[in-house]
């Protein structure tokens, strides 16, 4: 079947109201079943964590959500400003934990770290902070990775990918923007260029080499609608983009799965010891 350029247009409009109804129930229901009342998440001032914070406040009440800002000394001051702006708007009280000392303590003993490794250290420091807050406050850690990032593997294993519940993991980045507008997230947060802010001037789209608009259209037609690579190229996506994206998805499958367990016995954890996580809840 041939795809026309019309068929590979933008993603259909997101039903944001319905998404809010489902994701807020998801948060309250799964949190309660796990035996928690509170949630904790990192606030970066970016759109993803802003949306998750807004959903969590709607689902659990502002008193049950802990937003933690975790800047490193080179983080953009705008990130913290935006996080504060967001928190004020949704009535969330924030806490700040500067990760500079803990990160520098490690970095001082290591040399020649490139940006990627330094970025991994920062995001894993933040994971340590969040999980310690989790234990201290009896609060579950919320994830803020979107579907685009999860598919492309654009995240750090045991860093920003670590969480207990992720309400936005089935929404593409461009859909997060639609949801953010529905949730009245401040426009400056919605419209600023996406960045992990792991080093000065970092930009998601520069680093990835394509725009979210373009890759989301590609991912939607490839993953959700199951068009083949050949069909997508025939419909106007560049072959190099299709190849690069499909290869990224494949190469990063390990980040979407737990560690492989070497099977030895008749019944092994991860292979054939198959229980739901919500077992008995």
């Amino acid at each position: 079947m041939d795809l026309t350029s019309e068929q590979i247009g933008a993603l259909p409009e997101l039903n944001a109201k319905l998404v809010v109804e489902i994701t807020t129930r998801f948060l309250s229901d799964e949190l309660r079943k796990a035996g928690f009342q509170k949630a904790v998440l990192g606030l970066s001032g970016g759109i993803d964590s802003s949306v998750v914070a807004a959903l969590a406040v709607r689902a659990l009440g502002a008193n049950n959500v802990i937003g933690v800002m975790m800047p490193y000394r080179t983080s953009s001051p705008q990130s913290t400003e935006d996080a504060v702006l967001l928190a004020a708007q949704i009535g969330l009280s924030t806490e700040k934990f500067d990760i500079s000392e803990m990160a520098d303590g490690y970095l001082a003993k290591r040399s020649n770290l490139n940006d990627t490794r330094r970025g991994n250290v920062f995001t894993r420091c933040r994971m340590i902070v969040l999980y310690d807050f989790s234990a201290e406050r009896n609060a579950l850690v919320l994830g803020t990775s979107n579907k685009t990032e999860l598919l492309l593997g654009y995240g750090t294993l045991f860093g920003d990918l670590a969480s207990a519940l992720n309400p936005i993991g089935d929404l593409y980045k461009t859909e997060i923007r639609q949801l953010a507008r529905f949730l009245d997230i401040p426009e400056r947060i919605i419209s600023k260029p996406p960045t992990a802010d792991l080093w000065a001037g970092q930009s998601d789209e520069t680093e990835l080499g394509f725009s979210y608009d373009e890759v989301d259209r590609l991912l939607y037609h490839c993953v959700d609608l199951r068009f083949s690579g050949a069909q997508l190229v025939a419909s106007g996506f560049s072959e190099s983009l299709v190849t690069r994206v499909v290869e990224r998805i494949r190469r990063n499958q390990f980040k979407r799965r737990g560690p492989l367990v070497c099977k030895l016995s008749p019944r092994s954890v991860t292979h054939d010891f198959l229980y739901p996580r919500d077992w008995g809840t």
């Binding site: 997101l14 039903n15 319905l18 859909e175």
Partner: peptide, 12 residues
């Protein structure tokens, strides 16, 4: 299971 939150007016 509820699925389908795109382009369906207001319904799932």
């Amino acid at each position: 299971p509820g699925r389908g939150v795109r382009g369906m007016d207001s319904a799932l």
